[in-house]
Amino acid sequence: MSAIITRATVVGGHDGRAEIEVELTYANGGTSTISLDEDACLASLDTAGINSIDDLVGQPWSTVLPALELLGDTHARSRHS
């Protein structure tokens, strides 16, 4: 069972930076929403060769995975409270 990105929207992050809110829909119809911070999102777009968040819709969940893994070791920016 794999998840598909069904929505990607620019939203305001808690720390005053923009974020992308991504909705994933699973094969069972269940959905979950994750939020990518600016660095992670930009890296995801670069990795996928995408120039617009609209193009994320329809992509498999794994589109954002390479960027997240890359960021995990280098400059991943988690949320600040």
Binding site: M1, L24, I34, S78
Partner: peptide
């Protein structure tokens, strides 16, 4: 896939 929040933990 159910825990993308853990993906950045290499």
């Amino acid at each position: 896939s159910w825990n993308l929040h853990l993906a950045a933990r290499r």
